[in-house]
Design a protein around this nucleic acid. Structure first.
Lengths: 341, 341
DNA sequence: CATTGGACTGTAAGCGCTTACATTCGATTC
DNA sequence: GAATCGAATGTAAGCGCTTACAGTCCAATG
């Protein structure tokens, strides 16, 4: 008798023995196959209950070669940029009987590649990734194993990769237009790190193109590039405001940076929007919590998440390639942006 | 020739064949065993590279009966209450070579039980859970399989379960004392749902006990119990402020509710803290972002996460039961609480 | 009553990996 | 040069599950 452990993890065999049937029958019960008598099913379920049996996921995955698990790799969990979208993604998956595994790449490309491998290794049936820019070897790895994937938070009609998102460049251009319409000409920019981040890059481009189209020189607009953190937004703002010619508006490439800017403005004793206007992008929850509320671009996060889940499940069910979808964003004018007289 | 798929997922066997060695040798290379010649190792690594091989996690878990994966089940990912702690938890685990799997129970006990099973099934070596209150069957299930676990965000010296956290009741009592010291006597309370949530329950108790100790009747303090959502905090605040005798301070059981309250105060045209003071609990990032900054209780989230990871890894390494640790919280007096004249 | 067919159940072959144990191979020692 | 021994490598037995295929059973049929 083995004394070292007085507990045993019950297996399918244990259940089968206890119920007096074969393992195949137990498996069939557990997987909702019709070909089981009610009487048998009941016996089995009782045994399962009595033993406190839970199927071993790894074994099941290996035998069935299907896990009903989706993987998602997002650049960050620390700030809320992706929270709502992922939440909706997961809710929709849940309805379809799928489980979601999320991991974060901290905006580091090599980490993303590692996470992809990890999720693939864990048997994810398909993957959700953010944006287009990444090492080609990642796409290669995915192709090589025939792993279905979908990109989100970006849309580029010229790309071969299936994606569901919106046009970051055009959205930001629209917002910039609105800022110019308010009479602003001295614009400063706080951007996220552009390398390996097409969303940030496209948004920045959107501002510059709009400025150029309106006859302003984009290169004249002071710009700071900094990682997506509230604190960084605050520091960047402070630096920008120390220039000889202060900007009348600071446009941030996302809400997190913008909130940091607002915070520092307050700490510096500057009124928003009286002394300086501030804009963001994403319309995360924070945008409405700050005082004044933040002018930003609303992204249909929830819908994007939901549709991404649907598309991925269809791809799997029908074994067909992914289809891209473009969603619309919307500029939200709120208190942080004022009209110049 | 199989035409239906032109890709094949390489296996250990493929690598072994390509490298001209046995699967055992390949496995040894991959798992860092010393017993391999440098020459052999090199051959193997080349084959791995050439084939783009990634080990199948499920198979590995099954064979090795160890996954180097920890599971954590937190009540919510949607608001940031647990974000920093979990982040630190995961960083520390990473240093020890562990991977973290997180899932959220949405404050629903039955869902938590399901998640526990799911993580166990996925082969988690150990689990991190939040607080004490849960269905006994969960603890039973854990015991039965000999699954190591640790509780966090709460500490109760009388409980048999290993935990790492702080005394929610005493912390809240201290804050309440500070509020009373400022001259407040008309206190209203916004609490989270207490059922199945010992943290909320203890915090509430902390307020009531402090009031009683100071000769005030706890039952006189208006109280609203509502789920942890900004919006709910806002609504509760509005309701409380419609009473005949307005409170001079609204104490919230966590920062999320408090931020909601502040938001609604602003929308109702009430000055904080001029017209009404507001306090929170947790000291999440938001607490410093709102204007005025929130008076709250600082919880050592990061340290808690880090220590939890260490303890769990030690439990696994030494195959020993968990040890409880109590951490200290600290009241942070900030702009949202004013002294009554 | 023998035959047939359909519905359920059982048998057993893997899924891709780790690892105890057996084997081989050199180098060292006498 | 034979014996010895430790290190490197190979062999093969599972880990817990699903599922193709085979087998069984019983009611319906002739």
């Amino acid at each position: 008798m083995d004394v070292s452990r007085d507990y045993t993890i019950p297996t399918l065999d244990d259940v089968a023995r206890q119920a007096g049937v074969s393992t195949a029958t137990v498996s069939r019960c557990l997987n909702g196959s019709q070909k089981v008598t009610d009487k048998t099913r009941e016996k089995v379920m009782q045994a399962v209950e009595a033993l406190g049996y839970t199927p071993n996921f790894g074994a099941r995955a290996m035998a069935a070669r299907r896990t009903y698990t989706m993987g998602a790799i997002i650049p960050t969990m620390e700030n809320a940029i992706f929270a709502r979208g992922v939440q909706a993604f997961q809710e929709q998956l849940h309805k379809g009987g799928y489980t979601l595994l999320v991991s974060s790449s901290a905006y580091r490309p090599e980490l993303e590649a590692e996470q992809v491998r990890a999720l693939v290794a864990r048997g994810a049936d398909a993957l959700l990734l953010i944006g287009y820019d990444r090492n080609p070897s990642v796409y290669e790895h995915l192709e090589r194993r025939g792993m279905p994937y979908l990109l989100a938070w970006a849309y580029n009609k010229d790309s071969p990769h299936p994606a569901i998102g919106f046009d970051n460049r055009a959205s930001m251009a629209t917002l910039t237009g609105a800022v110019l319409d308010k009479g602003h000409r001295d614009i400063a920019i706080i951007s996220g790190i552009v390398a390996g981040n097409d969303r940030a890059a496209e948004r920045l481009r959107g501002i510059r193109e709009c400025l150029a189209a309106r006859g302003l020189d984009p290169d004249k607009a002071p710009m700071i590039e900094t990682p997506y953190e509230i604190e960084n937004g605050a520091n960047a703002f402070e630096t920008l405001m120390q220039a000889d010619q202060r900007p009348t508006v600071v446009m941030c490439v996302n809400d997190v940076l913008a909130v940091g800017a607002m915070q520092r403005a307050r700490d510096m004793g500057l009124e928003v929007p009286g002394d300086v206007s501030i804009t963001g992008f994403d319309d995360i929850e924070l945008a409405r919590i700050v005082t004044p509320q933040l002018t930003t671009v609303h992204v249909p996060h929830r819908e994007m998440g939901r549709l991404a889940a649907q598309e991925l499940m269809h791809m799997l069910d029908d074994a067909r390639p992914g289809v891209s979808t473009e969603l619309q964003s919307k500029v939200c004018l709120r208190g942080s942006l004022r009209a110049l007289d």
